[in-house]
Design a protein around this nucleic acid. Structure first.
Lengths: 165, 165
DNA sequence: TACAATTAGATTGTACACAATTATTAATAT
DNA sequence: ATATTAATAATTGTGTACAATCTAATTGTA
């Protein structure tokens, strides 16, 4: 059964938000509180917003932060590989990486073997930033106030869905 | 316990992605695959992307779609109330509502009682769009391929978190 | 070996998001 | 009654996102 129907059925069973039987049956699926995507969209924005004060301290935006995570891990990769890891395309990454290059966090060089590839490599300064960033996840977690169980379950469900992208 | 630690502990228990004991203990929290925010951010973008073909049919963006949902429900409200419902501020809403007004979906009028308030009211054309939109949730659900259980659990966890915003 | 198809990035254009600031109006506190 | 404060939108500036298009390099193939 499709996920939207579950949510709608769940709402109907609880007897909430129904105006008339007919209107409820036909349009309840168009109510904000019955959406699955809307809270996902809201929660994602909210958590990025909560990262901001911590990321400001090390002068990174959230997108730059996840790009650094990829680089702390891989050290060197091309734009395509980075895009696959972050689920971002060149339209987003090109200007982002140029800014990060200006900040001295990485270098951008065309590959000798295949000139189509742009190699992105972390610098010493980029590596050093890891030391400053390492306290962020714990400090963020402390201000999220989500139970251990919810966090684990959420992680599990989202990763299952990401596998289908 | 903070949610990030749970994820990290979980990862450690599973023995994945550890390089050395020291490095694992110190930096595992900075690995993309140990983040809770990252999959949330990716999944939210992905679902909005999957809405696009359906929303293109009725010439709405995702943000305009959730604004219409609020209007289909409330018929008339001011920008502040709309912002509270959608978790968006006037910087996002002002240009969005102007575009929707141009499309004839709503009207924007200053309140007589309190000139600070801008009243946003749905038009007949806006109401009529509901009829075209009503099949979207089901059609979207069909292409999400998320289990009934996951969808319900996800809905529950996200709403619990939204309650803390 | 020409040449079509593919691939990787960059560019362009549109649409958010949101912080910070400003302008207007309303409420309130002397 | 006036000065102060608060509330509400609008504006400005920065930073994503992503579709569509373009260019250059590489690969596959007849």
């Amino acid at each position: 059964m499709a996920s939207n129907e579950i949510i709608n059925n769940k709402m109907r069973k609880e007897g909430t938000h129904m105006k008339t039987v007919k209107e409820g049956e036909t349009y309840d699926c168009l109510r904000l509180e019955n959406q699955l995507c809307f809270p996902l969209y809201v929660c994602a924005k909210e958590i990025v917003r909560r990262y901001k004060p911590f990321l400001d301290e090390i002068d990174l935006t959230y997108t730059q932060y996840i790009a650094m995570m990829a680089l702390w891990d891989k050290k060197k990769l091309n734009v395509k590989e980075l895009g696959d890891m972050l689920f971002l395309d060149s339209g987003t990454l090109t200007p982002l990486l140029k800014k990060m290059e200006e900040k001295g966090l990485l270098t951008r060089t065309r590959s000798k073997e295949d000139e189509r590839n742009l190699i992105v490599e972390i610098t010493d300064k980029g590596e050093a930033l890891k030391e400053e960033a390492k306290t962020i996840p714990e400090r963020l977690g402390s201000c999220l106030s989500m139970s251990e169980e919810d966090a684990g379950k959420l992680y599990e469900i989202l990763h299952r869905f990401m596998g289908t992208i």
